[in-house]
């Protein structure tokens, strides 16, 4: 499968400390990839490496099908907002954008006004950035990342410091950019609920290690309400489930089946299994929230 970006054992070491350990992420064109992790999990370091701001200690990445040094030539198609927005506080929002337009060789006259419009700052273009609220600065940071219409935009904690209305606006903006301009987005955050409202794919990183990559559907499935049935013969159990009209189920391992319908019929299911001489080792109704799922995976409270 052709990925827009995939990393191959990407590692970053500072002294003896490995901030990112052999990470392999896979992002396709049009994805909104949510990178979830606690503070200090290695999100920013990973994003810096794939943005060309930090050199990997080991490993490399493939970008637009090109790998090694050739991939670095395509970084001009990658817009970034890493950590807090990097802006000149004594300059206006327009001037900050104009600077990047000049640096990138973007000569289109309307570029600055269009970008300000996209991020909802069209009325504040002439205002000095030092007088901006945190949310306005974040939005300007996103606009800077969009200069030159990049194909991939890397946003590190873009909703940091935003109020609920600001978060919703940024989320809508990003979703619109993805939908209308087919911009692929990588968004890191430790606010899982927010990320879950927009991301189509997820990567969960912890202590520099990528624990899991999954699609939105997979995540919802794992977090949705379900019956978790543990039995000694899943093959026969599936036949029994079919027999009693249950079709929405999934065998997740040799002993476990997740059933996503008729959640109140645990008794009927156990009875049917017993009738067919299949032992029920355990049957429970589970409803795991996204945050619980993340905590179970990383083994602790979120340091948000």
């Amino acid at each position: 499968m052709e990925y827009l970006l995939n990393t191959n054992g990407l590692t970053k070491q500072y002294g003896r400390h490995k901030a990112v350990k052999s990470v392999n992420i896979h992002i396709r064109q049009g994805d909104i990839y949510g990178l979830i992790g606690r503070n200090g999990a290695g999100k920013t370091t990973l994003l810096k490496m794939i943005s060309g701001l930090a050199a990997p200690t080991q490993g490399d990445f493939t970008l637009f099908g090109k790998s090694g040094k050739e991939a670095y030539r395509y970084l001009s198609r990658v817009g970034t907002l890493i950590e807090s927005p990097g802006i000149y506080p004594n300059m206006s929002a327009s001037d900050n954008l104009k600077l990047k337009c000049l640096a990138m060789g973007v000569r289109r006259k309307d570029e600055v006004s269009e970008l300000l419009d996209i991020v909802g700052l069209s009325g504040a273009g002439r205002k000095k950035v030092k007088n901006f609220s945190m949310g306005m600065k974040q939005r300007l940071g996103i606009a800077l990342a969009l200069v030159g219409s990049p194909d991939l935009v890397v946003l590190d904690e873009p909703i940091n410091g935003l109020d609920p209305q600001g978060i919703a606006e940024v989320r809508d903006t990003l979703a619109r950019l993805n939908r209308e301009r087919n911009i692929t987005l990588i968004i890191s955050s430790h606010i899982l609920e927010e990320l879950s409202k927009i991301a189509t794919h997820y990567g969960i990183i912890h202590d520099g290690v990528l624990l899991q990559e999954l699609t939105r559907e997979e995540l919802l499935e794992r977090c949705s309400e379900r019956i978790e049935l543990k039995t000694d013969d899943t093959r026969k159990a599936c036949t029994v489930l079919d027999g009693i009209g249950i079709t929405q189920y999934k065998v997740v391992d040799p002993d476990t089946i997740h059933i996503f319908e008729r959640l109140n019929d645990s008794g009927e299911i156990t009875f049917a299994l017993a009738q067919n001489k299949i032992r029920t080792l355990g049957i429970t109704v589970k409803n795991e929230a996204l945050e619980d799922y993340y905590l179970n995976l990383t083994g602790g409270a979120v340091n948000a």
Binding site: S51, G52, L53, E83, G86, P89, L99, K100, A145
Partner: peptide
């Protein structure tokens, strides 16, 4: 040192050959 100080360099450094 202004672009290092305020972080503006992060907006452009990665995109330069």
């Amino acid at each position: 040192s202004a672009d290092f100080k305020n972080g503006y360099i992060k907006n452009i450094a990665g995109q330069l050959k």
